[in-house]
């Protein structure tokens, strides 16, 4: 339940926020929701602590990807003088 709520809040944040940093926070929320799910569902797994272990890996990966994403945001800001994802539409070409 918590994870589902967290996921929903995360997706809402991703879709509605005007700031790339907030979008990034939203992504982290969804990721955390997924990790929470993994820990929760690990209880039903036959292998002990596999979920927790996987979650640790996922956290590390999430940190790495966040770092990369922040770097991208920084570059985007340098190029467009804005970090509002609604105003950046260069992907359409």
């Amino acid at each position: 339940m918590v994870s589902a709520g967290l996921f929903s809040i995360g997706i809402y944040v991703v879709l509605s926020k005007q700031n790339a940093i907030q979008v990034l926070i939203g992504i982290e929320m969804m990721l955390n929701a997924a990790i929470l799910n993994m820990v929760a569902f690990g209880k039903f797994d036959k292998i002990n602590n596999a979920g927790q272990t996987f979650a640790l890996f996922a956290i590390v990966l999430a940190a790495a990807s966040t770092a990369v994403a922040l770097a991208i945001v920084l570059n985007v800001y340098r190029r467009h003088q804005t970090i509002d994802p609604g105003k950046i539409n260069q992907l359409k070409d």
Binding site: S16, G86, L91, K92
Partner: peptide, 9 residues
């Protein structure tokens, strides 16, 4: 094809 990531999402 608006080019906005959020729309795609």
């Amino acid at each position: 094809q608006s080019g906005r990531v959020q729309y795609y999402l």
